[in-house]
Amino acid sequence: QVATSTVRILGMTCQSCVKSIEDRISNLKGIISMKVSLEQGSATVKYVPSVVCLQQVCHQIGDMGFEASIAE
């Protein structure tokens, strides 16, 4: 089973930030795809909930120095 959710990301300033986040999160087990939008300050994450949760994704992004939260 696959889920798609949006994560809000604060602190991104350039495409390099976007690429860094996409590269790191895409390597997590259970992540199918991730598309980060600098303009919208968010990311669309396609993932397998039984393998990885959005809290883990937000935590990983937080470790990179950005502020991440699950969009309502």
Rank of each mutant, 00 (worst) to 15 (best):
S5I: 09
V2W: 15
Q1S: 07
P49F: 08
A3D: 06
D23S: 11
K35M: 08
A43E: 03
S69Y: 14
L28T: 06
R8K: 10
S26R: 11
V51N: 02
S33C: 08
S50K: 07
C14W: 01
R24M: 09
I31R: 00
V45W: 01
Y47D: 02
I61V: 04
L10Y: 13
S20A: 10
C17L: 06
S69E: 09
V48Y: 15
V52P: 00
M34F: 15
V57R: 03
R8F: 12
E22W: 07
S16H: 12
G41P: 01
I21H: 01
A68R: 04
P49D: 04
I70N: 05
V2G: 05
C58R: 10
G65M: 05
L38F: 11
M64I: 08
C17T: 05
Y47F: 08
F66Y: 12
T4S: 07
N27Y: 07
Q55M: 10
F66V: 03
Y47C: 05
K29N: 12
S20C: 07
G62C: 13
I61W: 05
Q1G: 08
A71M: 12
D63W: 09
V18Y: 02
C53S: 14
M12G: 04
T13N: 06
V52F: 01
H59R: 14
H59D: 15
S33P: 00
E22K: 05
C14I: 05
K29R: 12
S5N: 10
G41A: 14
V2K: 03
C14Y: 00
T6E: 10
G30D: 03
F66G: 02
C53F: 06
C58P: 04
S20D: 12
K19Y: 09
Q15R: 08
S42V: 11
V51Q: 10
I9P: 00
L28C: 05
S33E: 10
I25D: 01
S5P: 00
P49T: 07
I25Y: 03
S50Q: 07
L28H: 02
I31Y: 00
T13I: 11
G11N: 04
T13V: 12
Q15G: 11
I32H: 03
C14S: 07
K35Y: 07
V7R: 00
F66K: 04
M12C: 06
I25L: 06
I70Q: 05
Q56T: 14
V57M: 03
V18E: 05
S5T: 09
S5C: 15
A68M: 06
D63T: 13
F66W: 05
M12P: 04
I32T: 02
C53L: 08
G30S: 04
E39S: 09
V48L: 13
C17W: 05
I25W: 02
V51H: 04
Q1T: 08
A43M: 08
Q1P: 15
M34C: 10
G62E: 14
N27G: 12
K46E: 15
P49H: 06
I9S: 00
Y47V: 02
A71R: 07
K46L: 15
G41S: 13
L28P: 01
I32L: 08
Y47I: 03
S50L: 08
I21Y: 01
K29L: 13
M34P: 00
L38Q: 02
M12F: 03
G62I: 15
E67F: 13
Y47P: 00
S20W: 07
S33W: 09
Q60F: 13
A68V: 13
S5R: 12
N27R: 13
R8D: 09
S26L: 09
V36S: 00
I25V: 09
N27V: 11
M34A: 08
V2M: 07
S50H: 07
A3W: 15
T4F: 10
I21C: 05
L38E: 01
K35A: 08
S26A: 10
E39T: 10
L54C: 05
K35P: 01
S26M: 12
D23Q: 13
D63K: 14
Q60N: 09
Q15N: 11
T13D: 06
A3N: 12
V36E: 01
Q60M: 14
I70D: 04
M64Y: 00
N27I: 12
I25A: 01
D63S: 11
V18L: 05
K46G: 04
I9F: 04
M64R: 01
R24Q: 11
V36T: 02
Q56E: 14
L54R: 00
V2Q: 07
R24F: 07
I61S: 02
L54Q: 00
